[in-house]
């Protein structure tokens, strides 16, 4: 088992290197000269040269890439061209809003998807099944940015029920002294439910928008998984033993049906991080997605590189984690090797 995990981890390294090479090549081909932008209209040649070397823009491609790689393995991702702060530190600051948004969206998708999926599997052909079908089709096909704008104009502007922007400490809890940037989790753990409730209101609309794609996947997966389980022999046995239908479903069917659903939920995490790019832009959410888009707008190479690497690494690690989990849970694939 340990050998398997180690081998998989080692295999991740060439994969990450290859991906970083591709990302670096793409980012390097951006047109524009950040030094000219930074130094204004009339830079001296010396200043230009100093800037180029400080931003790792001088020398041939392979040298620049190797220098970047050397920094990256030491968790040095260069400096933001605009703010001159280390990109690694900035990313850490931008992570909390994205983590909270992704978490709530995933939680929402899991709870709702599970409930609807189970219902529609148990009562196929009823209205709830129809709702499930519409949700899973719509969730996949409605563009997130369009849905976001519709949510804003209906619930935010027309009805005025929910705030749709303003995820900052001073707006979420004007009198609350935030110690971290987790504007949702922190008040919860410090038992300030009024601030937590306020934060929940702020996060609701973007979380709903972001949850649609995982919601669709989870609903479908639950439905087919439950359908498969209810027709199995042990369910008939359980029923024959005289267990109540309720117990059969909750104790037996649901538990077994949950395994593939949990896996698929885990896999959504990687897509969520990148899906956040669109949602964050529509709701002007101050997380990693907005940071990346602004970085791309400004041809801010280190920012784009840092964010892309983070997304890729997260994606790879989540997949690896799920694979390993599978391996542990299911003895049948354990011996199949790689």
């Amino acid at each position: 088992m340990l050998v398997y995990v180690l081998r998989r981890l080692l295999l991740t390294i060439p994969l990450l290197i290859a991906v970083s090479l591709v990302v670096f090549a793409v980012v390097s081909s951006f047109p524009g000269d950040p030094c000219r932008e930074q130094l204004g209209q009339h830079p001296t040649p010396e200043a230009l040269e100093a800037c180029r070397s400080s931003l790792n823009l001088d020398g041939p491609f392979h040298e620049r890439y190797l220098r970047y790689l050397e920094g990256a393995v030491q968790l040095e991702f260069g400096h933001n061209i605009r703010t001159e702060e280390p990109v690694g530190e900035e990313i850490l600051l931008k992570l909390p809003p994205t983590i909270e948004l992704s978490f709530i969206a995933l939680l929402l998708a899991f709870l709702v998807g599970n409930w609807i999926g189970t219902r529609s599997a148990l009562k196929p052909g009823t209205w709830i099944d129809a709702v499930g079908q519409v949700l899973s089709l719509g969730g996949i096909s409605i563009p997130v940015f369009w849905l976001g704008m519709m949510l804003i104009s209906l619930f935010g502007v027309k009805l005025g029920w929910l705030p749709f922007s303003g995820w900052t400490a001073s707006e979420v809890g004007p009198d609350f002294d935030f110690k971290t940037d987790f504007l949702l989790f922190e008040p919860l753990f410090r038992l300030r439910f009024d601030v937590f409730w306020n934060a929940l209101g702020h996060i609701a609309l973007p979380a709903i928008a972001l949850s649609t794609i995982p919601l669709a996947t989870i609903t479908r997966m639950t439905r087919s998984s439950v359908l498969e389980e209810v027709n199995k022999d042990y369910v008939t046995t359980a029923r024959a033993k005289g267990l109540s239908e309720r117990k059969v479903i909750t104790k037996h069917v649901r538990r077994n049906a949950l395994i593939p659903v949990v896996t698929i939920t885990g896999l959504q995490l990687g897509t969520l991080l990148s899906g956040a790019v669109l949602t964050e832009t529509v709701f002007s959410w101050p997380g990693l997605g907005t940071y990346l888009v602004r970085g791309a707008d400004e041809t801010n190479y280190p920012v784009v590189m840092g964010c892309m690497l983070l997304f890729v690494t997260t994606f790879v690690l989540v997949n690896l984690f799920v694979d390993v989990l599978y391996h542990m849970i299911d003895p049948r694939i354990r011996d199949e090797g790689l």
Binding site: G156, F164, G166, V282, S284, T290
Partner: peptide
Amino acid sequence: LYFRISNNATVRSNRLIANNG
């Protein structure tokens, strides 16, 4: 006076119309 930020022009105009901060 509070100077706050929203990087999206549509969100800014919507927040003004909704009287939302």
